[in-house]
Amino acid sequence: MTRLRVFLWGLVAVAAGLLGLFAYQLSQPKNDFVQSAMIGKPMPEFTLPAVVSERPGLASADLANGQPKLLNIFASWCVPCAAEAPHLAELERQGAEIVGVAIRDRPEDVAAFLARYGNPFSRIGGDDISSVQLELGSSGVPETFVIDGQGVIRYQHIGDIRAEHVPLLLAELRKAEV
């Protein structure tokens, strides 16, 4: 009889534990971000044509020239990309080299976007079918990657860059120097 009692109370404890776990997990914010599995791996080979006349296109060979860079995935049709523009400008002002990949974008739209929000990019490649985005393991715009001087992907920032992310990205760039 007591054995049965202990067993039943055990069941109650297990059920209560499960309910507690559910309640806890339900109260946690859901993380919809898909992290790239490419961190620490070399950038796959690619060549993208120029989008605007005043900046050259972008190829993987340009990334392995000894200097760490930020690779910003953006689009003129993406609202958060406009929101992060001043912070990209700030990163450039503080010495970061930034290259851009414009996703599914028309040259005239990119030109208008840059004229309106500024152009912090040293190179801009046009990716009409998201091929480089898929190579990078990126699943949305905007995203920003830190690429070291050997062309190895070192860090991924998902979503728009806000003021508080600027020092963080500068620190990741410094880390990528060694």
């Binding site: 992290q35 790239s36 599995a37 490419m38 079918i129 091929s131 985005q133 898929l134 393991g137």
Partner: peptide
């Protein structure tokens, strides 16, 4: 764009599991 990758890679001679592995290498098992 992902369907385009799948179809062009199969057309180039990759097996379906190779294409899956290519995506898993980039995005993980998810």
């Amino acid at each position: 764009d992902m369907r385009h990758q799948v179809r062009t890679r199969l057309l180039a001679g990759d097996t379906p599991e190779e294409v899956r592995a290519w995506l898993v290498e980039r995005y993980g098992d998810y």
